[in-house]
């Protein structure tokens, strides 16, 4: 089914998202003036501090009242308002092409929704995939007018990249040195492990959200009989005979995997969220992500 814009971002979802904004626990410096308080002092209406005048300061910010009283040149400092760098990193490997809707599609919807929130709050939104090379940037989006550009870009993403999770994340970090919020949407199913990839993100000192998308078929497999399972990415084969203990074992393995990922993230100050492709994006953002503090 071709993914349409309305599919990615239905109007009712848009209406719901209008009321939200992205939150970061860390206060980062943006490059442009935004709608967000910054650590930096700057021009705004909100008072921050006083300091002595040094030559070169803007005379407009002198506190003339204090000069009259104390005969000293004191400068009034105001809090600067700035924008937020919001990155969405989508895993578009072959394994993401499974499920109904496919995990990739689900990831795109999620990215679109979060991106939309960022755009309407005039944050800097950048959506990239793991497969991009280190010098290949995704478009930088800003402002409500860029929503359609974002959706267009998302639509162009297709499953089929073969870059491993670690390499993809490493390239991303090389490309984007700035601070901000990084949302990694992936199934984390990499035979080499997800740990090294996530470590790259930790070292970036960005606010990291890891959303692990799993399809219903992976969470509760509906299989029977004697099967030859073929890995869609590396054509690896696993022969199984489905039985009750095997299914139980699979589930416990899955739980251990998910639990392991969550613990790994929590220990490193990253936020982890498991998303089932059957949970509507609307619910996920409206309740889960809100509770986790990504949006407000």
């Amino acid at each position: 089914m071709p993914v349409t814009e309305s599919n990615l971002l239905p109007p009712d979802l848009m209406a719901q998202l209008e009321r939200l904004e992205l939150v970061t626990r860390k206060v980062f410096r943006g490059r442009m003036k935004g709608e967000r308080r910054s650590k930096r002092k700057g021009q705004s209406v909100e008072f921050a501090d006083f300091r002595s005048y040094v030559p070169g300061d803007d005379l407009r910010s002198l506190d003339w009242n204090l000069y009259a009283r104390l005969d000293k040149l004191i400068i009034k400092l105001f809090l600067e308002e700035e924008d937020l760098h919001f990155f969405t990193l989508i895993d578009s490997s072959l394994s993401m092409g499974f499920g109904t809707p496919t995990k990739l599609e689900y990831a795109k919807q999620l990215a679109a929704a979060l991106g939309f929130v960022g755009l309407i709050r005039t944050d800097r939104v950048r959506i990239e995939t793991l497969g991009q090379l280190s010098n290949q940037h995704g478009p930088v989006l800003r402002g409500r007018k860029s929503v359609w550009r974002m959706l267009e870009y998302l639509n162009s993403i297709e499953a089929g990249e073969t870059t491993s999770l670690a390499t993809g994340v490493k390239n991303f970090c090389l490309r984007n040195a700035g601070k901000g919020i990084v949302v990694l949407i992936s199934d984390l199913m990499d035979k080499a492990g997800y740990e090294s990839a996530l470590r790259f993100l930790v070292s970036q000192r960005v606010d990291v959200y890891v959303i692990q998308v799993l399809s219903q078929e992976e969470i509760d497999p509906d299989v029977k009989g004697d099967l030859k399972l073929v890995d869609v990415e590396d054509q690896d084969i696993a022969e199984i005979t489905v039985s009750a203990p095997l299914l139980a074992r699979y589930k416990s393995t899955l739980n251990a995997f998910v639990g392991g990922a969550q613990e790994f993230c929590n220990r490193r100050g990253m936020n982890y969220l498991l998303a089932n492709n059957q949970t509507p994006v609307k619910d996920l953002i409206g309740s889960y992500l809100r509770r986790r503090g990504l949006v407000r």
């Binding site: 092409g97 078929e217 992976e218 099967l227 399972l229 890995d231 869609v232 990415e233 199984i240 074992r249």
Partner: peptide, 22 residues
């Protein structure tokens, strides 16, 4: 002549680990 039905899965990662346990 046990013919196993081939089935494509996103990843055999979890299955392999399950079989190993079994």
């Amino acid at each position: 002549k046990l013919k196993r039905q081939p089935l494509e899965v996103p990843s055999t990662y979890l299955w392999k680990r399950s079989i190993e346990d079994m």
